[in-house]
């Protein structure tokens, strides 16, 4: 269980998060949405233990700010928004770094993680030689290897992802969503920051909509993806429709109507 209570975060002089209360359950995909600067990434960084905070963030019973890095590493993997690798490590070596920091061992996990993101053929290439999207998938494989089994003897593991598909084409976006879905079905917890409302609708069990450092709405996609709410939060007239099998989808307004 991830339990966040009365979370406040200051970055410099600005209070970026102003009182967040949120629970996320393993077995579910929780998607964080919100406009630029609403505090999505900050929330994820607080949950991953990267920045100091006031209030409480408990992951599987551990207060994150007071838990040793190695213990957190066995509990959750974090995919940062952008990662640059300083030396010409190969893709397999980067994935192995994730593996070594988790609690599993075994070279076959490196191979499986690479296969999962479709990079098996690139295993022995220096990661800098890959395209931006391929590099992002390599880092996803590294994070997956760190918490390969969604549920361990110490309970469920977690994936925390900050815009994991920002640089991916639509085919790979869908593949990554499938990876997150499988991880949750295996008993793991997933918290992902996304920008694409429709992608969020397709994968989320719960959507958390943020605005100006607080949670504006949280619940199942049907409850959060509403015309009035989205239009107000994003400052843009948005229409939500319902697809027969898929549930809600969001349509941006025609640009002519805006420029008129």
């Amino acid at each position: 269980m991830l339990r966040i209570a009365d979370l406040h975060v200051r970055l410099g002089r600005a209070e970026v998060l102003t009182g967040i209360d949120l629970d996320a359950a393993p077995g579910e995909v929780t998607v964080i949405l919100g406009p630029n600067g609403s505090g999505k990434s900050t929330l994820l960084r607080a949950v991953s233990g990267e920045i100091p905070y006031a209030g409480s963030v408990r992951l599987a019973g551990h207060e994150v700010a007071r838990t040793a890095p190695w213990r957190l590493a066995a509990l959750r993997g974090v995919m940062e928004q952008a990662s640059t690798v300083a030396f010409p490590f190969t893709v397999a070596e980067v994935v192995r770094l994730g593996l070594q920091s988790g609690i599993e061992a075994g070279e076959e996990i490196v191979a499986a993680a690479l296969a999962e993101v479709g990079l098996s053929a690139f295993a022995h290439r220096p990661i800098q030689e890959l395209s931006g999207g391929q590099q992002a998938r390599a880092h996803l494989a590294r994070v997956r290897a760190q918490v390969w089994h969604p549920s361990g003897h110490a309970g469920p593991r977690w994936l925390l992802l900050d815009e994991p598909v920002a640089s991916l084409d639509i085919g790979h976006q869908v593949e990554v969503m499938a990876i997150l879905r499988r991880f949750a079905q295996g008993g793991g917890g997933v918290v992902a920051v996304l920008h694409d409302l429709n992608l969020a609708a397709s994968v989320a069990d719960r959507i958390v909509l943020m605005a100006a450092g607080r949670i504006e709405a949280a619940g199942p996609p049907e409850a959060v993806l509403r015309d009035d709410l989205l239009s107000r939060v994003y400052g843009c007239p948005l229409r939500v429709g319902v697809a027969p099998v898929r549930g809600p989808w969001v349509l941006p307004p025609p640009i002519e109507a805006l420029s008129a």
């Binding site: 233990g49 990267e50 890095p69 590493a73 940062e80 990662s83 770094l97 920091s101």
Partner: peptide
């Protein structure tokens, strides 16, 4: 060695992978 390998991915990533930076 292990910490420096992890640090090649940046301070945040290294910390997320369990390195005491």
């Amino acid at each position: 060695a292990r910490g420096l390998d992890a640090l090649a991915l940046g301070e945040a990533a290294a910390a997320h992978m369990g390195t005491d930076i």
